[in-house]
Design a protein around this nucleic acid. Structure first.
Length: 149
DNA sequence: GCCAACGTTGGC
DNA sequence: GCCAACGTTGGC
């Protein structure tokens, strides 16, 4: 799951109450579908810093709730307000995410790209903009290994 | 700041 | 349903 650290970093999550936050603001159907249908409580999450110097995996987290409607879609004052959303049929969903482990070091995208075993990983593909991406068990293990865990 | 890649919108 | 225009993402 990607976040711009200037907006919300892994350290922000680590310091949050119960190290948990609701992952709101996702406005992409593919990413929504992954959160709503592709996640189970307890699933591992790679917390990725995008638009950062350097970009990369900043920490480990986990899915901490089932998906539920994102309240920001109904709030006209919120930048993620979506006037097309109706409460009877919410368009945008999110999950709770809980920080689980800091990494000994940030694992830069450049290293992910340089690792043959991660060649298929979504985040290393050219033009990969999706903010929520699936990670295979093998990729998960390899990332942990590279990060020094 | 640049710009390629991508998703969405809306005219037709 | 097509596709050009547009806005956004995100690496560099």
């Amino acid at each position: 799951m990607k976040s711009e650290p200037a907006a919300f970093s892994f350290e922000d999550l680590w310091r949050a109450r119960r190290r948990t936050t609701f992952w709101d603001g996702v406005r992409n159907y593919q990413a929504r579908n992954l959160m709503r249908g592709g996640m189970r409580v307890g699933d591992g999450v790679l917390f990725y810093h995008s638009n950062a110097a350097p970009p990369g995996v900043a920490g480990l987290a986990e899915v901490a709730s089932a998906a539920r409607p994102d309240p920001t879609q109904f709030d006209p004052e919120d930048p993620h307000y979506d006037p097309r959303s109706r409460r009877e049929e919410p368009r945008w969903w999110g999950v709770d995410v809980r920080a689980v482990a800091r990494l000994p070091r940030l694992l830069p995208l450049e290293e992910l790209k340089g690792d043959a075993r991660l060649a298929g990983m979504a985040v290393v593909q050219r033009g990969s903009r999706l903010s929520v991406q699936p990670v295979t068990p093998a990729e998960w293990k390899r990332v942990r290994q590279l990060a020094g865990l």
